[in-house]
Amino acid sequence: MPKIISTHSFRGGTGKSNTTANLAVLTAKRGLRVGVIDTDIQSPGIHVIFGFDPKSAKSSLNDYLWGRCRIEEAAYDMTEGCIGQVHTGDERPRLFLIPSSLRTGEIARVLREGYDVAKLNDGIHELVEGLNLDVLFIDTHPGVNEETLLSIAISDALVLTLRPDQQDFQGTAVTVELARRLEVPRMFVVVNKVPEGIDQDLLREQVEAAYQCQVAALLPLSNEMVKLGSGGLFANRYPDHPLSVSLKRLSDELMTS
């Protein structure tokens, strides 16, 4: 049964897209067909981490939403660059990216006209069926808006990313409440960019008390990640780094049960 996993953060800058991209690659490396869809139409970005050149995209999620193409035509096979050589005949592992458009006109059109979220839902399901995906990651726009709520509503699991920061704490509570009301089956709280020297047990306790749900991972603030500046996939570049190890464990947890 294919899995749909949404990643969300209430505020920007939590490292949501980096977490999503790395989780997607680590998940695909288990020998699965994985898709990543960028529904952050207002401020797309996850394609950068995959090293995808937006100029090479004939079609994007926007084209699908405006009825200009089928959703599969906006999916790009990133397997070779992100996982390595796979025999052409092999169906697994595979990694597909469905980018949003970076063209100013396209972004302006979404802001001006909006779009039918139900159509996004149709697209997501056509994508899972058409590409025969085992797992689809949905990278959402920070904050609460229609496409994030839709992704929560259709997801089997929701990964909530926040920093150890009071603004993140308060905002995330809103998402947690909405996710509960949308009856998302599983919620994973990920505290990212945890600085060295912080009392991890206390932090974990605080977060768990605030949201009444378990913290799935505390990810360390990493200099290497900062230096990488979204210029690549961290887990590929530093496979033995504690951050990569934690991400791998998180991917395991997402895939079990």
């Binding site: 139900a118 839902n121 259709i154 009301r181 949308l182």
Partner: peptide
């Protein structure tokens, strides 16, 4: 909020696939 969430549930409803 209920109305908003309701719209999301509607958009995500399996019945929509039936209609489609």
């Amino acid at each position: 909020v209920g109305a908003l969430l309701g719209r999301m549930r509607s958009a995500a409803s399996p019945v929509r696939d039936v209609l489609r």
